[in-house]
Computed example of a mutant assay.
Amino acid sequence: MNHSSAARMEAACSLLAESERRYVLYQLANREQGHIEDLVTQVAAWKREEPAEAIDRETRQYVYVSLVHNHLPRLADYDIVDYDLRSGDIVLDHGFDDIKPLLEQFRQTEAVSEIRTGPALR
Rank of each mutant, 00 (worst) to 15 (best):
M1V: 10
H3E: 15
S5F: 07
A6G: 04
E10R: 09
A12I: 08
S14T: 10
L15S: 04
L16H: 15
A17I: 02
A17V: 00
A17E: 15
S19P: 02
E20D: 13
R21Y: 05
R21V: 03
R21C: 01
V24I: 14
V24L: 11
L28C: 04
L28Y: 08
Q33Y: 06
G34R: 06
G34A: 08
H35Q: 00
I36G: 03
E37C: 02
V43Y: 01
K47P: 00
E49Q: 13
E53H: 00
A54Q: 13
I55H: 04
D56M: 02
D56I: 09
E58I: 05
E58S: 10
T59K: 04
T59R: 09
Q61C: 06
Q61I: 13
Y64M: 08
L67A: 02
V68M: 02
H69T: 09
H71M: 07
L72W: 06
R74L: 08
Y78S: 11
I80W: 10
I80S: 06
V81I: 06
Y83H: 01
Y83D: 02
D84H: 10
D84V: 05
L85S: 11
R86F: 12
R86D: 15
S87V: 09
G88Q: 05
D89T: 01
D89W: 04
V91W: 04
L92I: 07
L92W: 02
H94I: 07
G95I: 02
P101E: 02
L102V: 13
L102T: 13
L103H: 07
L103T: 03
L103I: 03
Q105E: 15
R107Q: 15
Q108Y: 10
E110P: 01
E110N: 09
A111R: 10
V112Y: 13
V112M: 01
V112N: 15
S113C: 03
E114Y: 04
E114N: 03
R116I: 10
T117R: 14
G118A: 15
P119A: 13
P119L: 10
P119W: 04
P119K: 09
A120E: 15
R122L: 06
